[in-house]
Design a protein around this nucleic acid. Structure first.
Length: 272
DNA sequence: AGCGGAACCTGTCGGC
DNA sequence: TGCCGACAGGTTCCGC
Protein backbone atom coordinates (compact mmCIF):
# COMPACT_ATOMS: atom_id res chain seq x y z
CA UNK A 1 0.00 0.00 0.00
CA UNK A 2 1.94 2.95 1.15
CA UNK A 3 4.79 4.62 -0.60
CA UNK A 4 7.00 7.39 0.74
CA UNK A 5 4.30 10.09 1.05
CA UNK A 6 1.92 7.82 2.92
CA UNK A 7 4.66 6.63 5.27
CA UNK A 8 5.74 10.23 5.86
CA UNK A 9 2.12 11.20 6.60
CA UNK A 10 1.85 8.40 9.15
CA UNK A 11 5.20 9.35 10.67
CA UNK A 12 4.17 12.97 11.20
CA UNK A 13 0.87 12.04 12.75
CA UNK A 14 2.35 9.37 15.00
CA UNK A 15 5.00 11.66 16.42
CA UNK A 16 2.34 14.13 17.52
CA UNK A 17 0.92 11.61 19.97
CA UNK A 18 3.61 8.99 20.53
CA UNK A 19 6.69 10.89 21.66
CA UNK A 20 7.14 10.51 25.40
CA UNK A 21 4.54 7.75 25.67
CA UNK A 22 5.49 4.60 27.54
CA UNK A 23 4.45 1.09 26.51
CA UNK A 24 2.62 -0.54 29.40
CA UNK A 25 1.57 -3.77 27.73
CA UNK A 26 1.38 -5.43 24.34
CA UNK A 27 -1.16 -7.79 22.82
CA UNK A 28 0.11 -9.90 19.96
CA UNK A 29 -2.93 -11.13 18.05
CA UNK A 30 -0.94 -12.60 15.17
CA UNK A 31 2.67 -13.60 14.92
CA UNK A 32 3.14 -12.71 11.23
CA UNK A 33 4.37 -9.13 11.77
CA UNK A 34 6.94 -10.00 14.42
CA UNK A 35 8.28 -13.26 13.02
CA UNK A 36 10.75 -14.81 13.60
CA UNK A 37 10.51 -13.46 17.16
CA UNK A 38 8.12 -15.10 19.58
CA UNK A 39 5.40 -13.01 21.23
CA UNK A 40 7.14 -13.49 24.57
CA UNK A 41 10.48 -12.13 23.38
CA UNK A 42 8.85 -9.27 21.48
CA UNK A 43 6.82 -8.12 24.47
CA UNK A 44 9.65 -8.63 26.91
CA UNK A 45 11.90 -6.27 24.95
CA UNK A 46 9.28 -3.57 24.44
CA UNK A 47 7.24 -3.37 27.61
CA UNK A 48 8.33 -0.43 29.73
CA UNK A 49 10.01 1.27 26.79
CA UNK A 50 9.28 4.90 25.88
CA UNK A 51 8.92 6.29 22.35
CA UNK A 52 11.69 8.89 21.99
CA UNK A 53 11.61 9.73 18.29
CA UNK A 54 10.19 8.57 14.98
CA UNK A 55 12.14 8.67 11.72
CA UNK A 56 11.43 7.55 8.19
CA UNK A 57 13.84 6.00 5.72
CA UNK A 58 12.38 5.02 2.36
CA UNK A 59 9.16 3.23 3.21
CA UNK A 60 10.36 2.19 6.67
CA UNK A 61 9.18 3.74 9.92
CA UNK A 62 11.86 3.83 12.61
CA UNK A 63 10.60 4.03 16.18
CA UNK A 64 13.36 5.15 18.52
CA UNK A 65 12.86 3.66 21.98
CA UNK A 66 15.25 3.66 24.94
CA UNK A 67 18.68 3.70 23.30
CA UNK A 68 19.87 1.64 21.59
CA UNK A 69 16.57 -0.12 20.87
CA UNK A 70 14.64 0.59 17.66
CA UNK A 71 11.47 -0.93 16.27
CA UNK A 72 11.47 -0.87 12.47
CA UNK A 73 8.03 -1.00 10.88
CA UNK A 74 7.10 -1.68 7.26
CA UNK A 75 3.46 -1.42 6.15
CA UNK A 76 3.89 -3.39 2.90
CA UNK A 77 0.53 -3.48 1.09
CA UNK A 78 -2.15 -3.04 3.76
CA UNK A 79 -0.45 -2.27 7.05
CA UNK A 80 -1.47 0.75 9.11
CA UNK A 81 -0.95 2.27 12.50
CA UNK A 82 -4.01 3.51 14.35
CA UNK A 83 -4.12 5.45 17.60
CA UNK A 84 -7.25 5.22 19.67
CA UNK A 85 -8.49 5.19 23.24
CA UNK A 86 -8.12 1.89 25.07
CA UNK A 87 -11.91 1.99 25.41
CA UNK A 88 -12.20 1.56 21.66
CA UNK A 89 -12.92 -1.95 20.42
CA UNK A 90 -10.50 -2.79 17.62
CA UNK A 91 -11.39 -4.50 14.38
CA UNK A 92 -10.41 -8.00 13.41
CA UNK A 93 -7.33 -6.87 11.52
CA UNK A 94 -5.56 -5.50 14.59
CA UNK A 95 -2.42 -7.66 14.75
CA UNK A 96 -0.27 -6.09 17.48
CA UNK A 97 -1.62 -3.62 20.05
CA UNK A 98 0.56 -1.43 22.23
CA UNK A 99 -1.23 -0.15 25.36
CA UNK A 100 0.24 3.21 26.32
CA UNK A 101 0.51 5.06 29.61
CA UNK A 102 -2.17 7.72 29.14
CA UNK A 103 -5.13 5.60 28.15
CA UNK A 104 -4.26 5.44 24.45
CA UNK A 105 -3.39 2.45 22.31
CA UNK A 106 -1.28 2.10 19.20
CA UNK A 107 -2.65 -0.63 16.98
CA UNK A 108 -0.78 -2.18 14.07
CA UNK A 109 -3.47 -3.36 11.66
CA UNK A 110 -2.90 -5.33 8.50
CA UNK A 111 -5.43 -7.17 6.36
CA UNK A 112 -2.91 -9.18 4.36
CA UNK A 113 -0.31 -9.71 7.07
CA UNK A 114 2.67 -8.78 4.90
CA UNK A 115 3.72 -5.90 7.16
CA UNK A 116 6.61 -6.30 9.56
CA UNK A 117 7.74 -5.05 12.97
CA UNK A 118 11.37 -5.75 13.67
CA UNK A 119 13.55 -4.98 16.69
CA UNK A 120 17.16 -3.90 16.23
CA UNK A 121 19.83 -2.18 18.28
CA UNK A 122 21.46 -0.36 15.39
CA UNK A 123 20.09 1.30 12.27
CA UNK A 124 23.25 0.85 10.29
CA UNK A 125 23.62 -2.89 10.46
CA UNK A 126 22.18 -5.43 8.08
CA UNK A 127 19.79 -6.46 6.83
CA UNK A 128 17.71 -3.30 6.50
CA UNK A 129 19.06 0.19 6.24
CA UNK A 130 22.38 -0.54 4.65
CA UNK A 131 20.81 -1.68 1.41
CA UNK A 132 18.48 1.23 0.75
CA UNK A 133 19.23 3.64 -2.06
CA UNK A 134 19.00 7.41 -2.41
CA UNK A 135 16.47 9.26 -0.27
CA UNK A 136 14.53 11.24 -2.87
CA UNK A 137 13.68 14.23 -0.68
CA UNK A 138 17.20 14.65 0.64
CA UNK A 139 20.01 16.86 -0.63
CA UNK A 140 21.86 13.76 -1.87
CA UNK A 141 19.24 13.18 -4.58
CA UNK A 142 20.87 15.06 -7.45
CA UNK A 143 21.68 14.51 -11.10
CA UNK A 144 25.28 13.78 -10.20
CA UNK A 145 24.31 11.00 -7.76
CA UNK A 146 21.55 9.54 -9.93
CA UNK A 147 23.12 9.69 -13.36
CA UNK A 148 25.83 7.06 -12.78
CA UNK A 149 23.20 4.67 -11.41
CA UNK A 150 20.98 5.13 -14.45
CA UNK A 151 23.84 4.87 -16.92
CA UNK A 152 24.80 1.39 -15.77
CA UNK A 153 21.27 -0.01 -15.99
CA UNK A 154 19.64 -1.47 -19.09
CA UNK A 155 16.36 -2.13 -17.26
CA UNK A 156 13.17 -0.30 -18.14
CA UNK A 157 13.08 2.97 -16.19
CA UNK A 158 9.89 1.85 -14.39
CA UNK A 159 11.68 -1.18 -12.98
CA UNK A 160 14.70 0.89 -12.04
CA UNK A 161 12.63 3.44 -10.14
CA UNK A 162 10.83 0.71 -8.20
CA UNK A 163 14.16 -0.77 -7.06
CA UNK A 164 14.55 0.31 -3.44
CA UNK A 165 18.30 -0.27 -3.53
CA UNK A 166 18.59 2.52 -6.13
CA UNK A 167 16.03 5.03 -4.84
CA UNK A 168 14.21 4.38 -1.58
CA UNK A 169 10.53 5.19 -1.29
CA UNK A 170 8.96 5.19 -4.74
CA UNK A 171 6.25 2.65 -5.48
CA UNK A 172 3.81 1.70 -8.19
CA UNK A 173 1.57 4.78 -8.06
CA UNK A 174 4.18 7.51 -7.89
CA UNK A 175 6.49 5.98 -10.49
CA UNK A 176 3.69 6.05 -13.08
CA UNK A 177 2.83 9.62 -12.08
CA UNK A 178 6.42 10.85 -12.23
CA UNK A 179 7.10 9.29 -15.64
CA UNK A 180 3.94 10.83 -17.07
CA UNK A 181 4.99 14.25 -15.85
CA UNK A 182 8.37 14.08 -17.59
CA UNK A 183 7.08 12.49 -20.79
CA UNK A 184 9.25 9.37 -20.55
CA UNK A 185 7.92 5.92 -21.40
CA UNK A 186 8.08 3.38 -18.55
CA UNK A 187 9.62 0.95 -21.06
CA UNK A 188 12.64 3.12 -21.92
CA UNK A 189 15.94 1.59 -20.76
CA UNK A 190 17.23 3.54 -17.74
CA UNK A 191 20.56 4.24 -19.42
CA UNK A 192 18.81 5.93 -22.37
CA UNK A 193 17.61 8.91 -20.36
CA UNK A 194 19.16 12.18 -21.52
CA UNK A 195 20.69 14.66 -19.12
CA UNK A 196 17.72 16.97 -19.51
CA UNK A 197 15.36 14.11 -18.70
CA UNK A 198 17.36 13.14 -15.63
CA UNK A 199 17.10 16.70 -14.37
CA UNK A 200 13.37 16.64 -15.05
CA UNK A 201 13.06 13.27 -13.32
CA UNK A 202 14.63 14.65 -10.17
CA UNK A 203 12.50 17.77 -10.17
CA UNK A 204 9.28 15.84 -10.87
CA UNK A 205 10.05 13.27 -8.20
CA UNK A 206 10.49 16.00 -5.59
CA UNK A 207 7.42 17.86 -6.77
CA UNK A 208 5.13 14.82 -6.84
CA UNK A 209 6.30 13.47 -3.49
CA UNK A 210 6.12 16.85 -1.74
CA UNK A 211 2.74 17.56 -3.21
CA UNK A 212 1.48 14.14 -2.14
CA UNK A 213 2.79 14.71 1.39
CA UNK A 214 1.12 18.13 1.48
CA UNK A 215 -2.11 16.30 0.60
CA UNK A 216 -1.61 13.59 3.23
CA UNK A 217 -0.89 10.85 0.72
CA UNK A 218 -3.10 8.89 -1.67
CA UNK A 219 -6.10 6.88 -0.48
CA UNK A 220 -7.19 4.56 -3.25
CA UNK A 221 -8.47 1.49 -1.50
CA UNK A 222 -7.36 1.13 2.06
CA UNK A 223 -4.73 3.69 2.97
CA UNK A 224 -5.95 5.66 5.97
CA UNK A 225 -4.20 8.14 8.17
CA UNK A 226 -3.60 7.52 11.85
CA UNK A 227 -6.91 9.18 12.70
CA UNK A 228 -8.67 7.14 9.98
CA UNK A 229 -9.07 10.14 7.67
CA UNK A 230 -8.21 9.62 4.01
CA UNK A 231 -5.40 11.31 2.11
CA UNK A 232 -6.35 13.55 -0.80
CA UNK A 233 -3.66 13.05 -3.45
CA UNK A 234 -5.85 10.56 -5.36
CA UNK A 235 -7.58 13.68 -6.68
CA UNK A 236 -4.39 14.75 -8.41
CA UNK A 237 -3.40 11.48 -10.09
CA UNK A 238 -3.02 11.83 -13.84
CA UNK A 239 -2.50 8.24 -15.02
CA UNK A 240 -2.49 5.70 -12.18
CA UNK A 241 -5.68 3.63 -12.26
CA UNK A 242 -6.95 5.57 -15.29
CA UNK A 243 -6.87 2.89 -17.98
CA UNK A 244 -8.83 4.09 -21.07
CA UNK A 245 -9.40 7.56 -19.63
CA UNK A 246 -8.33 10.39 -21.93
CA UNK A 247 -4.84 11.74 -21.37
CA UNK A 248 -5.19 15.27 -20.04
CA UNK A 249 -2.67 16.54 -22.59
CA UNK A 250 -3.65 14.79 -25.83
CA UNK A 251 -6.95 12.98 -25.08
CA UNK A 252 -5.65 9.61 -26.26
CA UNK A 253 -6.59 6.74 -23.94
CA UNK A 254 -4.26 5.90 -21.05
CA UNK A 255 -2.83 2.42 -21.52
CA UNK A 256 -2.36 -0.21 -18.84
CA UNK A 257 0.52 -2.66 -19.27
CA UNK A 258 2.20 -5.11 -16.90
CA UNK A 259 5.86 -4.80 -15.90
CA UNK A 260 7.42 -6.93 -13.20
CA UNK A 261 3.97 -8.42 -12.64
CA UNK A 262 2.58 -5.00 -11.74
CA UNK A 263 0.32 -2.54 -13.52
CA UNK A 264 1.89 0.43 -15.27
CA UNK A 265 -0.27 3.26 -16.59
CA UNK A 266 0.96 5.64 -19.26
CA UNK A 267 0.18 7.66 -22.36
CA UNK A 268 1.80 6.15 -25.46
CA UNK A 269 1.52 9.48 -27.24
CA UNK A 270 2.98 11.83 -24.59
CA UNK A 271 5.52 9.41 -23.11
CA UNK A 272 8.30 8.30 -25.44
C1' DA B 1 22.15 -8.30 -14.95
C1' DG B 2 17.64 -8.79 -15.07
C1' DC B 3 13.60 -11.26 -16.17
C1' DG B 4 9.45 -14.21 -15.08
C1' DG B 5 7.13 -16.77 -11.70
C1' DA B 6 5.79 -17.97 -7.21
C1' DA B 7 5.25 -16.98 -2.49
C1' DC B 8 3.75 -14.49 1.62
C1' DC B 9 -2.02 -13.47 3.06
C1' DT B 10 -6.76 -11.57 2.78
C1' DG B 11 -10.30 -9.08 0.62
C1' DT B 12 -13.02 -7.03 -3.17
C1' DC B 13 -14.94 -6.72 -7.58
C1' DG B 14 -16.66 -8.10 -12.10
C1' DG B 15 -18.31 -11.69 -15.15
C1' DC B 16 -21.04 -15.58 -15.95
C1' DT C 1 -26.79 -16.26 -4.94
C1' DG C 2 -22.52 -18.51 -5.94
C1' DC C 3 -18.20 -19.65 -7.88
C1' DC C 4 -13.86 -18.22 -10.15
C1' DG C 5 -10.39 -15.50 -11.67
C1' DA C 6 -8.12 -11.10 -11.63
C1' DC C 7 -6.28 -7.73 -9.03
C1' DA C 8 -4.37 -4.96 -4.96
C1' DG C 9 0.03 1.00 -2.83
C1' DG C 10 5.47 -4.42 -1.39
C1' DT C 11 9.29 -7.44 -0.96
C1' DT C 12 11.98 -11.70 -1.43
C1' DC C 13 13.54 -15.96 -3.23
C1' DC C 14 14.41 -19.17 -6.97
C1' DG C 15 15.59 -20.60 -11.55
C1' DC C 16 16.95 -19.46 -16.17
Amino acid sequence: MPELPEVETVKRELEQVLIGRRIKAIDVQRLDPIKPLTAELFCEQLEGQTFRQILRRGKYLLFGLNPPLWMIGHLRMTGKFVISSQKTTLGKHARVIFRLDQGEQLSFEDVRCFGTLKLVESLTGPPLMSQLGLEPLSAEFTASSLKPLLKTSKRPIKNFLLDQTQIAGLGNIYVSEILFRIGVSPLRPAQKLKSKEIAALIAATRLVLESAIANNGTSISDFRRVDDKTGEFQNFLKVYGKENSPCENCQSPILRIVQQQRSTFYCTHCQI
